[in-house]
Design a protein around this nucleic acid. Structure first.
Lengths: 343, 343
DNA sequence: CTGAAAGCGCTTACAG
DNA sequence: CTGAAAGCGCTTACAG
């Protein structure tokens, strides 16, 4: 393996000069640059990343932390992130953590070992950020959760407007004539600092607001059932919900995976979707187009979400530009899983 | 940030001794070890990975290369790998590449930058390995493809016996009384060196053999349709297949995702699964339990697959033990998607 | 614009 | 069992 010494020798310049052209510095003569580049090509020389980083004491990678296990949606986002990173010639380090783990604590711990030059959080809870994020010095981006109110200058965020989008989804059910709408969602709270800005709370808030606008008061005790993001959990929760409130004519599921489980649960209860009960999802994963019935959902524009997230992070790693907070587009995708309620 | 110097000073020993306890070497007195560990704890000291690796000129990470985009199955394997790695205190670098990209060429290219201490290939084609793998010096593991015949001493492999498992799946269809079984699969070839050992070829070989055992000759022109691993592709291929061969009573789909697309296609053609046509999947992803109808499939034991793959790789990274090639268990999961053919 | 030299934080023969 | 010292491959003031 060629080292900087070999290149220095081959080019006839010192290792200092080689290092300078390696780092694209301007204080190098054109002649020297060409000689060095020639030698680099000839030897197919690759600088040793570890040695470079020794000085800078940070690693060359961006770390991606995904919170929320087994989610097709997050896995899809991860893949998009890696693809976009690759377009920029960057490689990523990946960590999956559980739905209830503390992503910021994880990041701090990782920071001590891997020393990433930037971190992308996919999913997370603003409570954890408020509590611990000040300990993280590198540029970070939070994807799918709004971090504007947190006010950290090294934390950007990109997300759909969960509250608005969920309200929009419910308006589609209302349009069809539904009045008795149930909700399958994760743990949320309007009071608790920990959950106040989680997507669960935001979506539920959007739903409740939209219902209220139409003169419907949402009864949490009767018409809400707790679940995680898996189809298994959606299945169980849907069953419980409908056994308790059999007069519901539609169900909003907090994610598509939950909706898939719910549709199956209803079928197993001897109900038809959408004749007996309508089901609405959220996210727009691939499978919704192939489920039976096809799932109506809110599709997030993941490509835009990821492109903006990655580009912004790399920009801030290189140029220390300020953090930004952006909402990305979503759209309603109609499907066979919703229909007007039975008279 | 504390460095090895600080620890040396605090412990009253030299940096050499500190380094020795850091590396778990035996030639250190118990007294010294305790004093050093005490100081490490006190300062919450984390060795600088870059500096460590400078000597060894390799990075501290394992790289995982996933070939085959957008596959829920692979994403699930990835997550399991990361979890298992974390149990060992290891972190991973991840690369996704397309279904037709060359994973070995990618690995070589990555090797020049990231210098992983080991590589896990999830999916891949033995042709690419035969062609380029000799250029890769670090311990590697190929998951889901058998590499035994390749004979590289730094390449282990863990996989189900695709040929046997696919044959077994078909035997289940035969048991139900099916004689006209179609296949949706990826490109394969018994002659072409490039595809000879791909899972597509192996599974199809297993199917053809099993059919033959029962006196049925598989007609590739009529009863096979090409697809990739996505539900979209499965949807299109299933439609084409059944339009061409409407007398088929069962279809074997090369993956669960393809099966999902196929079931939806049949429904859109006005057919009932399994009354008009049975569908069998392969892999055992989460969603098969919640599809409508529930998909019958071959479930691979991913937990075992990943545990063995990771443990073996880490072992070989540390101790240069020989490469191994193991088959992992699978099982038939019955489902509503298969039934006896209509008389 | 260029080179010689110090130094990044570790590891590892070498000597004792 | 331990310490002093060389060296891993780079970067970056410092001098010129």
């Amino acid at each position: 393996m060629a080292t900087i010494k070999d290149i220095a020798q081959a080019s006839g310049y010192s290792i200092g000069t080689v290092s300078r052209v390696l780092n694209n510095r301007t204080d190098v003569s054109e002649k020297a640059r060409q000689a060095v580049e020639e030698a680099i090509r000839k030897y197919n020389y690759q600088p040793n990343t570890n040695a470079r980083m020794l000085k800078q004491t940070i690693s060359s990678e961006v770390t991606v932390i995904l919170r929320g296990n087994r989610s097709t949606f997050l896995a899809y986002i991860l893949e998009e992130i890696q693809m976009r990173m690759r377009e920029h010639g960057e490689s990523i380090n990946v960590q999956f953590i559980g739905e209830t783990d503390d992503e910021v604590a994880t990041a701090i711990q990782i920071g001590q070992n891997v020393k990433p030059k930037g971190i992308i959080f996919v999913g997370g809870s603003s409570y954890n950020f408020r509590k611990g994020f000040s300990q993280i010095p590198v540029p970070c981006t939070l994807v799918t959760v709004d971090a504007e109110k947190l006010g950290f200058d090294n934390l950007s965020s990109f997300t759909v407007d969960d509250e608005e989008a969920a309200g929009y989804a419910v308006s589609k059910l209302l349009e069809k004539g539904h009045r008795r709408i149930g909700v399958l969602g994760g743990s949320f709270s309007e009071d608790d600092e920990e959950h106040k800005n989680d997507y669960n709370t935001l979506r539920i808030r959007g739903i409740v607001k939209e219902l209220k606008k139409h003169g419907i008061a949402f009864d949490f005790d009767k018409d809400f059932e707790l679940c995680t993001v898996s189809p298994e959990s959606g299945y169980r929760a849907a069953k419980k919900l409908l056994e308790r409130s059999p007069d519901l004519t539609a169900v909003f599921a907090i994610t598509d995976a939950v909706a898939m489980g719910a549709m199956r649960a209803f079928k197993d209860m001897g109900l038809s979707v959408p004749e007996d009960i309508s089901v609405m999802g959220f996210n727009g994963i691939n499978y919704v187009k192939f489920s039976n019935p096809r799932l109506a959902t809110i599709r997030q524009d993941i490509t835009t979400l990821v492109r903006k997230s990655v580009d912004d992070l790399l920009l801030r790693i290189s140029y220390a530009s300020p953090a930004v907070h952006e909402k990305i587009p979503y759209e309603f995708v109609d499907g066979e899983s919703i229909a007007p309620p039975r008279k």
